[in-house]
Each structure stands twice: as C-alpha cells, then as structure tokens.
Design a protein around this nucleic acid. Structure first.
Lengths: 289, 289
DNA sequence: CAACGGTGGACAAACTGTGGACAAGCCCAA
DNA sequence: TTGGGCTTGTCCACAGTTTGTCCACCGTTG
C-alpha cells in the first residue's frame, strides 16, 4: 500500500491530479488509513500509470479513464507481457541445463553463443530472449528457483568474462558511466549494455548496482562522461531514477533502459533491444555527437 | 541479544526512533532484562534493518512496518560491516585507481595479481586485504561510494573471468554447492571461494545470492553434493543462515564463511582465509573424506 | 559515581485531506 | 470570429495526521 505522495512519485501524476481523477472519474478507490489518508494498492498504481500513459499520448482524461476502467485488472509481471498465447512446451536449452545444474552444458551454450560475430545481435536475439523464457519457465514452475539462480549466475559470469576479455578503450575514447541507482539490483541488463559499449570501443566505467544519487552526481561532475546510462526496470525504481536523472542532467546527458524507461523526464529512452541500443549510442558518441 | 544502544548501532536507527517504531507499529517486541532493559535478538535486528532500508528508499514508516511484518521473507539491502580499526594512512593502489575511475589501471592491477602462481595465496594475501583497505578508506572518506563500487564491480568481473577460464571439473569430481541465503548479497567472498574450489578441480555449482532456504534444501536433496558452502557476512544474515544450515544438514555437510561464521551451530566454520579454506576443503573432499 | 536505559510527554517539520478558486484549452453555436 | 460553457490541471488556505527528535525525571549496571 502506498501513500498519496509515494503514489504520485510512482505514477508521475501530481497528488492533486490523483485526487481529481479519483473524484471525477473514479479510476481508483483507495482505501483509507485510520487518519483518513488514502492508501493505494499495486492495482491502483497500475491503473493510474496506464491512464497517465493514455493521457500523455493524447487521449482525453475522460476517455482514458473509461478505457482503464473497462480493462480487466491485470496482474503485473515485472513489466513483461505474456507471450502471444503459445505455451512453450519444450524447455529452452538453457533452462533445461539449469534445471540439471549442468555446469558444463550451461557454460558450453554460453560459449557457443558468445562466439558469434556480432555481440549486439547475440545479446538481443539469443541471450535476453532465453532469459525471458527462463523467467517464464520459472513462473509456471517448470524450473526451480535454484535452477534459475544457477543460470543467472552463469550468465552474469559469462558477460563479465566477455567484458574482461575485450581490449581497453583507446585513449580519448568517449567515456560512458553505466550502473543502477540506489535500491535497484537488476544488473544483467546494464551489464550486457556495458559489454556491448566496450566492444564498440567506448571507455566504459561500470559502477554496479545500488549506487546513491549523490555518488552519481559527484562522479559525473568529476569524470565528465559523454553519457550516463541508467536503468528503470520496475515501477519501484522510478522515484530514485527520476531523482538521479534530474540531478545528473546538468553534468552529462542521461540515457535510460529498462521496462519503465519512458516514464522518466529528462532522460532519453534507449529502447528495449539492449545490444542494438548500445551499438547505436556508441556510434553516436564516437561520431562526436 | 543486544541492548538498545548496540541495536541502534547495528541498525543505524537512533534509540528513540527504535522505541517509537516498537510502540507505534510493533515491528519488534524485544524481551526485557531483569532491570527492564530491552533485549533485541537477531531477528529483531534483521527486521529493523529491513525497515530502515525501506524508509530510506522512500516508504512511509507505517507501510514499511506493515511490509516487514507481513513478509519476514523480505530481502534486506546494504549490510553493516564492523571496521577493523587500523587506519592505514597511504591509500592502497587499488583504492587510488578506483578513486580516479581508471579502468585500465584497476584491471592491470587485477591482471597482475591473478597472474600469480597460487590463486589461493593471491586471494588471501592481496585481493581480500586490498578490499578491506578499500572499505576502510571508504569509511574514513578517503574514497567515494562510487569509487568503491567501481573497484568492487571490477573485482567481481575479474573473479568471474578467472572462474570462467578454468577448465571444467573432470567427471566424478566432488560436487560443491556455493552461494548465499535469502537476504544476503555480499557475493564477493563466496565467489572467490567458488573460484579457488574450481581451480582445485571441484565441480562447483554456484547458486548466487539471495536464495531461499527451501531452494537450498530441494537442490541439496537433488544434487547430493559433497559439501554446501554458505556465508554469514553480517549479523542481519544470521537468522536466515541458521535456518538454512539446520535444514540442509540432513542432506549434506554444511560449511560456513563470513564474519559471523562462528555464531551458527551445525555448520563447520571455514575460517577467514578464503583461498586457504577453499584449498583445504577441496583437498579434504578430493581425498574422499 | 558515570554511563546507560525506560517512560511519557512535548514539539516541529513534513505530509495529507477538503473544498473551492482559477486559468488555460477545447467545443460549439451565433 | 466571438463568446459562453465545459473540461482539466494546478494552486491555495486551513485543519488534522504522522513521525523523528528532544527533554526531564528516575531506575539499572558495573
């Protein structure tokens, strides 16, 4: 349950507007605390965010509200849409190897994939889809928590390995800061992004997960990077990401990945194809603008 | 059991606030000493730390309390380390390179270190002491949060890289499960441990951080490993580690690393020299005992 | 005795609710 | 084009709520 202020942060809709939307259209009916404070649940946040998206894209608030109310309540699943209805019967190779805890097979699969010529394509076409299918398999109980952890750990190791093997950026290469804000821990995406960036000759400073805003600002001021790349994987990350983006903006251009990337002002969204986005950004910076 | 002042230290929450959180939300119900002093146990400390993390990241205290009470499973965020106490005046090479965000220098230092003949010695004599000094430098403000993150990320990458480069274990090699329990996130130590174990020919299944107890038990039952290695880095981790150790024990021998390793019954402490401990355990398992 | 802890109350600062005001934008008839 | 009416986001004043910190007074510990 979230208070009014927090809900405003999460959805990007001002408190007052939130109240008006409730009074005028009844998009949400928050319960009340003892002290008569509004308490919004996850479903309310989802609806408000959906309505905000519609309004932003030109719908009239009244229509947007009607549309949101007509939609059945959806259980949000980490920002990922359910696949087009085809229940994958056979397990992904990677997931199967993970469920057997077969170190050799998992690492062989990853080795083979990373031997491909184009890193960006490998990441977008094979690695990330495989991980999405792994997540789906885990959700429907086809893969255990431990199996999922086992594969994820192997993937992170493999990306780190690839990152390490790449030659260092030449002197004078554009510098890019990559990492996650405080509270955020989904390293896989940013790590893959950092990998592709380095493969394109960028000077990547990878700062890891859970870094406070002040640290981002101080470092950006010191390093004067050509770009700062963050990720907004979940709604919960939004307040911290917004705060960071705003604070960093005066010192360096901010780019954003992750499912919630379009919900942050002042940061340029990079899209959802990590490898492609990294390659593009690298080309742009390498060309001097 | 901890007194009010000690608990305030451990959790970073002032004594008075601790009391208010107890009175207002009932997050904890410390037992009392003869003289009516509050006595907090490990679980209380864990909850308070979890609540503090939520509040720090923007939750209202009331919501945070409800969350902590609803879901004792909630993962905690940053841990608290006890400082060593010896103030090294000159900065460590690694720390200095980290403060300048000098990718090349940090990776060169790590490369050189890992080129040493004996991996276990490198880990114990250079890597971990360097990281301890880095932590000290950070605590006395000589290194920024970002600098510390930067170096840590590079170290994790380098260990992953080394792990990846090692040949796979031969068929029939003793299998060892390595990882962290639910709520625990200090991967560095267990990762280094896994690295040395693999270098000694063990079949290491690295399961990563934040794995729930049930997953450990199920997996141990399936894999029948020769050993399960966990870590208890902070006080906050103790309850979960104790639970896991007790649950896994019937299926496989449990070994323990980390600062709090001696405070868990039913798990054999491995000592604080990670590389040495891993080499020893490997020798022991390899000899069939 | 000094340091520490418990209790209850006080308090300021931040947050929230309510109802209404209001300006800007839009639609539509004149 | 003009003007009235409607919609919609924002702002405001006033009152109530929540929350971290401070304090005085007294008991406990070593």
């Amino acid at each position: 349950m979230y208070t009014a202020g927090r809900t405003a942060e999460l959805t990007g809709v001002p408190r007052e507007t939130l109240r008006k939307w409730e009074q005028r259209y009844g998009v949400v009916q928050p319960t009340r605390s003892e002290g008569n404070y509004r308490l919004y649940d996850d479903e309310a946040v989802r609806r408000l965010a959906a309505m905000r998206d519609l309004v932003d894209s030109g719908w009239s608030p009244r229509d947007a509200a009607r549309h949101v109310l007509d939609e059945p309540a959806t259980a949000t699943v980490a920002g990922l849409e359910a696949p087009g209805g085809s229940p994958h019967e056979e397990l992904d190779e990677l997931a199967a190897a993970g469920e057997d805890f077969d170190v050799v097979r998992v690492e062989d699969l990853l080795d083979k994939a990373f031997a491909e010529a184009d890193l960006a394509t490998t990441v977008d076409e094979w690695l990330l889809p495989s991980l999405v299918r792994l997540g789906e398999a885990w959700q429907r109980g086809a893969v255990s928590v431990a199996g999922e952890h086992f594969v994820s750990a192997a993937v992170v190791r493999r990306i780190s390995h690839a990152f390490q093997q790449l030659p260092h950026a030449p002197a004078g290469a554009p510098r890019v800061m990559v990492g996650l804000v405080r509270g955020s821990r989904h390293e896989l995406g940013v790590l893959a992004f950092a990998l592709v960036m380095r493969s394109r000759g960028m000077d990547v400073a990878y700062l890891g997960a859970d870094l406070p805003v002040e640290a981002w600002v101080d470092t950006a001021r010191t390093l004067q990077p050509a770009a700062v790349v963050l990720s907004a994987p979940t709604v919960e990350d939004l307040p911290a990401v917004r705060e960071a983006a705003q604070a960093i903006a005066p010192h360096a251009p901010v780019f954003l990945g992750g499912a919630q990337q379009h919900r942050v002002d002042g940061a340029e969204p990079l899209g959802h194809r990590i490898g492609e986005a990294a390659a593009e950004l690298a080309a742009r910076l390498g060309d001097g603008g």
